[in-house]
Amino acid sequence: MSIEKVRASQTERQPERKQVKVKVAKKKWISTGEKYLYSIVSGAVLCACAYVISFSSATDSLNRDIETLEGNLEQQQSVNSSLSYDVEQLKNPERILDVAKKHGLDIQQSQVKQAGTVSSD
């Protein structure tokens, strides 16, 4: 017998072994549920950051407007105090008497009286 026949007879005697491919499930680093939770949390964090930045910007803008209004208020108060000083100067009795004399008013017993009255009839 030849070697080939011997080998062929030996292979016939041995039952054939079927090789079954087994899929080995690799463990994922992050599961699907965790990915979902991480996505939700990261989205919430991004929304919170956007809200904080928006709120900060609005607050800063409001503060700038308030400072501008306070500056305008101080300027107006300065103008008002200057005008109040002018009013006090215009109330000076000597000045009033000078203006009265220029317009033809007579002074009797230190009282200013009008020389002629204008009737509205």
Rank of each mutant, 00 (worst) to 15 (best):
V20H: 08
E16A: 13
K18M: 07
K21I: 15
S42W: 05
S120Q: 14
A100W: 02
A44R: 14
Q75T: 14
K27T: 11
Q76C: 00
V6H: 11
A100V: 00
E34W: 04
V20N: 10
A100M: 02
I30L: 08
S82W: 01
R7G: 02
K21L: 14
Y51M: 15
G71E: 03
V112P: 02
S42E: 10
S120I: 15
L83Y: 04
I107C: 14
T59P: 00
S31Q: 01
C47D: 15
K26C: 02
S2R: 13
E16K: 12
K18D: 11
S81P: 01
R7D: 05
N80I: 10
N92C: 02
R64K: 14
V52A: 07
C49D: 15
T32Y: 05
S84P: 03
W29C: 00
A50H: 04
K102Q: 07
M1A: 09
A8L: 10
A48I: 05
L90N: 11
T11S: 14
A50R: 07
Q114V: 09
V24E: 11
V52L: 09
S57D: 10
E67T: 02
T11G: 14
A100S: 09
I3G: 03
K91Y: 06
T68N: 05
R13F: 05
K102H: 04
K27N: 10
D65K: 05
L105H: 13
H103R: 12
Y85W: 11
N92L: 02
E70H: 06
S2F: 11
R13K: 08
K91F: 04
D98Q: 14
D65A: 04
C47S: 15
K26T: 08
